[in-house]
Design a protein around this nucleic acid. Structure first.
Lengths: 232, 232
DNA sequence: ACCTGAACACCGTTCAAGT
DNA sequence: ACCTGAACACCGTTCAAGT
């Protein structure tokens, strides 16, 4: 009540797109480049200003806060997600393509994982994805609140699977060499027989392939579970 | 390779627990209090030092970096999760209790949502939870890599469902009054018929009750889908 | 209409110096 | 063994002043 929450998407941008100066698109593009290259902590208003060859504070003409800028960048990630036309595609196919391309988009922009828990996805690209997903579930036979529930279940699975995957890639795997990682894991797993068996089972496999297999295993399970709601 | 990743859990603490000074437990406890009260951005080494009535930099005797401190705090969240004994409980019951108590623990410590995507969960409490979960899935009839896959699927669902729930609660709901939120949502949903129907459907309901229902709907779906893997 | 630089109130972390 | 304060290299954001 006292603090007023404002999303970029709920108020008009200050300048009409026609001015002579910089544009929002330009700024967001540069921000994403910085984010992709250096991660969330690598983006500062000062660095971004330097990249745009302007003062750091000039950006505040186009954007009220850094969080607004992040909201804009975040929505661009959603633009990379493809969702087949639900009127011409079976709902399981819609969901499956959506899931794989969303995972891909997140892996391409690891910083998006950090924003999920902090910013609501209210941008137009996010809206388009969820609109199509909702229609697919309606046509599948869900009704009322169940449409929402089914959609939440699917996106929850995708997010929840991909976020730790990114955390693992950017911390443990990206930085440790494999033998050190093995040793560290063995130490942490000590006294936990199930975990040690799991490590032994996974050791000879390519971890990235295993994660892709895990994703498909879980996705099929989620879709089967949703299908069961339709027939029960 | 160049940067060396180190987790708190992979090296010995500097001081044995018996010293006369402060202790890790004391510091972590104070950190969690700050985190619960003010969120992730509310925790700074300086504030924490003040709360402990010491210099801010004294903390670095007990902990190498702020991230290590966060790892310690994060693992405490896992200690609040209850998992029934898998040797005496049907696996669906184990999974269901685990899911609900994990959601509860995260909602009690909203800052944990931000850490999920940043820190690997290698602490002893996290290990205990995953050990029990793995055993439950083995006894259910899963084998080899499928034990891991089933576990990942379940925790992915829980994380993925709860993280946006927290984001929503702490941004939109916690700060907007309901009429303003309705108006903002309507604006964002404009031109998306499925979304507008969803808002109308949800409007008269208590959003927290709806989210609890959504969680149960998805959980049953996930468990049904996993069960299908056993019989297929 | 758009951009600037100085300034404010913060950060995490290092390190020599103290007890 | 444990704690301190000063210092370094950063932050996001505000605002009066410029063009």
């Amino acid at each position: 009540m006292s603090r007023q929450f404002t999303s970029v998407w709920t108020r008009e941008p200050r300048s009409k797109p026609a001015g002579p100066g910089r544009s929002r698109e330009e700024i967001v593009k540069a921000a994403i480049e910085l984010l992709d290259a250096e991660g969330l902590t690598g983006l500062s208003m000062r660095k971004l200003g330097a990249k745009l060859m302007s003062g750091a504070t000039s950006i505040y003409w186009y954007v009220a806060t850094k969080d607004e800028l992040l909201e804009l960048a975040y929505d661009e990630v959603w633009s990379e997600i493809t969702v087949p036309d639900p009127d011409e595609t079976h709902w399981r196919e819609v969901a499956s393509v959506l899931a794989h391309s969303m995972r891909r988009a997140m892996l391409n922009h690891p910083w998006s994982a950090d924003l999920l828990g902090r910013l609501p996805a209210l941008g137009p690209n996010a809206m388009n994805v969820s609109e199509r997903m909702r229609r697919a579930f309606r046509l599948a036979g869900f009704a009322g609140a169940d449409i929402d529930f089914a959609g939440s279940t699917l996106t929850a699975y995708i997010f929840g699977m991909t976020i730790p995957e990114i955390a693992w890639e950017t911390t443990v795997e990206g930085v440790w060499d494999t033998t050190a990682a093995q040793a560290a894991l063995a130490k942490v797993a000590d006294g936990h027989p199930e975990l040690m068996r799991a490590i032994e089972t996974a050791a000879p496999e390519d971890p990235r392939v295993m994660r892709a297999m895990a994703f498909d295993f879980g996705l099929v399970s989620v879709l089967d579970g949703l299908e069961r709601r339709l027939t029960a």
